[in-house]
């Protein structure tokens, strides 16, 4: 049995940090290599914990989609269809494609609520905090100098 993706990324991150970065020193190449090492470590963390982190918040958003009283018939029907489709495979709403579909539907609900339903809008804002917080990654242990731009 081969290593899982997260394990392989962790090994690559360590290898990059210990084998490549020291050879290049404090140069543009060295710091770029260190950024790659940090990215690999973050991708390992994302692979290992991302879906589980996102699942609870995604289920909350799905529940809001399913229960929201939307007075626009066309939008309400569309959101209901999306909620039903996403509910059929709830595990997928924390994975990339399903999560994007959930977020797209949630964004439409939030936009409508901001215009027409203040109480629902407040629930959307709380849900948005949960979604965004669940998506956050911890800072990398040995990160790059920063995303200068």
């Amino acid at each position: 049995m081969s290593l899982g993706l997260a394990e392989m990324l962790e090994v690559l991150a360590r290898s990059q940090a210990s084998e490549v970065v020291p050879q290049l020193g404090d140069s543009y190449a060295g710091r770029t290599a260190a950024t790659v090492a940090a990215l690999l470590a973050m991708l390992a963390e994302e692979t290992r914990t991302g879906p589980a982190r996102r699942l609870e918040a995604a289920l909350g958003a799905l529940a809001l989609l399913a229960s929201a009283e939307v007075e626009d018939p066309a939008l309400a029907a569309e959101l209901r269809r999306e909620a039903e489709a996403l509910s059929a495979a709830p595990g997928r709403i924390a994975l990339a494609e399903g999560h994007a579909r959930l977020l797209a539907a949630f964004a439409r609900l939030h936009a409508w609520a901001d215009m027409h339903a203040p109480a629902l809008a407040a629930r959307c804002r709380a849900c948005l905090v949960a979604i965004a917080e669940a998506d956050r990654l911890p800072p990398p242990g040995a990160g790059p100098a920063g995303p200068d731009h």
């Binding site: 770029t32 950024t35 790659v36 940090a38 990215l39 973050m42 991708l43 994302e46 804002r125 948005l128 905090v129 979604i131 965004a132 917080e133 998506d135 956050r136 990654l137 800072p139 990398p140 990160g143 790059p144 995303p147 200068d148 731009h149």
Partner: peptide, 20 residues
Amino acid sequence: PVLLFAGLYPYRFHAAAVAR
């Protein structure tokens, strides 16, 4: 890779900060 990093860490940091 800094562009990739931007989309992974600062983006999510700011999404959470703005949502709050």
